[in-house]
Design a protein around this nucleic acid. Structure first.
Lengths: 208, 208, 208, 208
DNA sequence: ACTCCCGGGACGACCCGTTTGT
DNA sequence: ACAAACGGGTCGTCCCGGGAGT
C-alpha cells in the first residue's frame, strides 16, 4: 500500500485558504508548497497541474457551502426567517474573518467564477455545476414548501437561481466595501425575492 | 506644445477590451502594448504602472455603465418595466458578445471587483466608488418615484444597493453558465425586489 | 535524493569572474547564467536573489585573498620584505591579467566595497567583515613580531588597518591607470608604514 | 544669444549629489532630471549622453577636491601637521554627512574610479588625470619643502602618489565601516609615509 | 536656444507552472 | 519523494532620439 501521507490534504487545505484570500493567479504553486511544507516537485505527484488543484479546491468549497444551504433548507421556520438566517450566518462568518484578517474575501466560489470562467472551460463547468448544485438544493426546499402550501406556486427553479444570484451579488458588494455589515443590511432583499413571488401569485389570483 | 498622440487612448481602449475578456492578471502589459501598437517603453510614459491603467479602465467602464443606469432611470415607464428594460438591454448586449466571441464576460466592474478587491486597496476603493455611484444613480430615481408616489416609502438607499447586487449576481451566473439567456430569465427578480417593497408597505398599511 | 549538480559552483565561479571584471550592476543575472551554461530559471533555485549571489562571491574572494595575507605573515623574513613580497605577488598577478585581458581590475573586494557599500546594508556588512578579517590576520602577525621583538611596540590593530588601506589605495590607482607597475612602484609605502612606526618608537625611547 | 538657463548647472549639481550617494549605474537619467526639475527630453540638449554628464561630474568633483589639497600645501606648518589637517578636515566633513544622511560616501572620485574604470575608457582617463592632478599638487608642495630642506630628498612623485593612495584607501575603509572616525584613527599613517622617508634618509646619512 | 511630449527598443531582476533524472 | 533543470513569462526601467512649440 505504500506510505500514507497527508501531503495531498495539506496542499488542498493550504490552497483553499490562500486562493480564497488572494485568488487563483496571485497564488503560485511554490507558495502553496512552501506553506504546506511540501516539496515543489512533490506537488505534481498529487495533482497533475495547478488546474487540477483548483478543481479540487472548488469541489471542496462547493460542498462545504452546499451543506450550509442544506441546513437552512431543513430547519422548520417560516421561509423569510430561513433566508434571514443564512445571511446572518454569512455575516457572522465574515465578521470573524474581518476581525482576524482585517479583510473579507466574499464567496470563494464566486471569486473564482469571475476570475476564471473565461479562461478555462473545465473550471467554468465545475463552477457552473457548483452553482447548479446549490440552486437545486434550494429548489428542493422550495418545492417541498410549495407542496405543503407554505409558499405559493412560484417557479422554484428560477427563484432558487435568483436567490443564489442575489447572495453572490451581496457578497461581492460586501467584499468590495470590505464591510461584513453589507451582508446583514441587504439580507432583506432575499426575502423580498420570495415575498414578491407570493404577491405576484396573489395578484394573479386576485385578477382571476 | 509637444506632439499630440492618441497612444494613451489606444492603450486604454485595448486594455478595457482585453481585461474585460480575460481579467487583470491574465493580461500583461506587453500584450496590451502589442495590440495597441504602442511600444512597451512608451506605456510607462502614459501610465506610471499597470495599477494606474486598471484604475483608468475601471473609471471608463464605470462611467459607461453609469450612463446606462441613468438612461433607465429617465424613461417614463412603470418601474418594473424600467428594470426589465435594463436587463433586456444587458441581455442583448451579451447576446451580441456571445455571437462574436462565443463567450460572455459578465460585468467588467464585477469581474475586477472579485479579482482584485483583496489585492490592492486603491483598486478596491475605486471599485467601491463605482458601485456607490451606480447605486446613488438608482437611488435618485427611486426617490423621485417615491416623491411622486409611484413607489411606496421604501428605503431608497438599501433598495438601490440590492438592485445593484442582484444585477451583479445575475451577471455572474450568466458568465459562469456562459449563457446570456440567464440574464433574461432572472430579470424578473429585480422587479420583485421593488414589488416586495410595495407589498411590504401595503401590508403595513393593511395592518394599521 | 534529487539530482546532483555543479551548477551552483559554476554560477559562483562565473559571477566571480564577470563581476571582478565589470562590477556588480553591469553584470546581469542572465549573462551569468548564459556564460555558466545554466538556465535562467534555475538561477533562483540556487540563489534566492542576485544579492545572495554577490554575498557568496564576496565570501569566496575574501577567503582567497585572506590566504594570500596569511602566507605572507608566515614566511620567515624581515618584515619589510614580507610586505614587499605581497605587493610583488599582487604586481605579478596583475601583470598576468593585463597581458591576458589588456586591463587590470584591482581588488575584487575593494571594487565591490565602493560600488555597493551605500546601496545595500547587508553587503556592506559582509565587506566590512572581510576587511576586518584581513586586518586581523595581519594584526596577529604583527603581534607575534612585537612579542619576538622583531618590531617595536606599535599599535598592531591600527597598523594592520593602515596596511590594508594602503594596499587598497594602491590597487585603486593601479586600476585607474590600468598599469600593474603602479603596484610595484608604490610597494615601498607599505614598508614605510612600519618603518615609521619603528622610528616613532625610537624617538619616544630617545625622549625618555 | 537666446535664453539663458540654469538647467545645465542644476542637472550637474543634482547628478553630483545623487551619484556621490549612490554611484553611477544606480542613478538613472530620469531620476536626475526629476530631481533637478528638468524635462527628461531636455537632458540631451545639455549633455549628449549620460557618459558626458559623468565626465562633467568628475571634473567638478576633481577640481573641488584639488583646492582642498592646495590649501593644505600652502599653509605654513610642519608637514606632518599639514597632512593631519587634511585628514581632520575630511573627518569633519564626513561627520557632517553621517549626521545628516546616516551614511558616509567616501571619495566621490574613488567611488567612480572603482565602479567605472574597467567599463569606459574615456571615464578612466578622466579619473586618472584627476588623480595625477592631485598628486602633482602634492608633489609641488613636497618639492618646495625639499628645496627648503624641510624634508629630505625623498622622491616627491612617488611619495605624492603614495599619499593619494593611502588617502583613498582610508576613505574606502571608512565608507565600508560607515564610520567617519576611521579617517581620524588612520590619519597618522599618512604622516608615517613621510616620516619613514625622513628616517630612510637619516639612516642613509648615518651610514655614510 | 530651450522646453516638452512622445516615442523606442532592449534589458533589468525575478518568478511562472512543469518536467526530468536520481 | 525531491533537487535540479527548463524556457518563457512578469512588471518595470534603462538610455536615448525626434519633432513640435515657445
Amino acid at each position: 500500500m505504500g506510505r500514507t501521507s497527508n501531503a495531498r490534504s495539506r496542499l488542498l487545505e493550504t490552497a483553499m485558504q490562500l486562493m480564497y484570500a488572494r485568488g487563483y493567479s496571485a497564488v503560485g504553486v511554490q507558495e502553496i508548497c512552501a506553506q504546506a511544507g511540501v516539496n515543489k516537485g512533490s506537488f505534481y505527484h498529487f495533482f497533475p497541474s495547478k488546474q487540477a488543484l483548483i478543481l479540487a479546491v472548488i469541489e471542496a468549497h462547493g460542498q462545504r457551502l452546499r451543506h450550509i444551504w442544506e441546513d437552512v433548507m431543513q430547519v422548520e421556520e417560516p421561509w423569510h426567517e430561513r433566508l434571514q438566517r443564512l445571511f446572518e450566518h454569512t455575516y457572522e462568518a465574515h465578521c470573524t474573518l474581518s476581525a482576524i484578517q482585517g479583510q473579507i474575501y466574499g464567496c470563494p466560489i464566486g471569486n473564482l467564477a469571475l476570475e476564471l470562467s473565461c479562461q478555462d472551460e473545465a473550471i467554468r463547468q465545475r463552477l457552473r455545476e457548483t452553482f447548479l448544485d446549490w440552486a437545486s438544493t434550494i429548489e428542493r426546499g422550495l418545492r417541498r414548501a410549495i407542496a405543503a402550501e407554505e409558499l405559493p406556486a412560484i417557479d422554484p427553479t428560477l427563484t432558487a437561481q435568483a436567490i443564489v444570484a442575489y447572495f453572490e451579488g451581496v457578497l461581492m458588494l460586501a467584499k468590495t466595501h470590505n464591510d461584513p455589515y453589507v451582508v446583514k443590511r441587504l439580507a432583506h432583499g432575499a426575502v423580498h425575492l420570495l415575498e414578491a413571488a407570493v404577491r405576484t401569485k396573489d395578484t394573479r389570483q386576485g385578477q382571476r
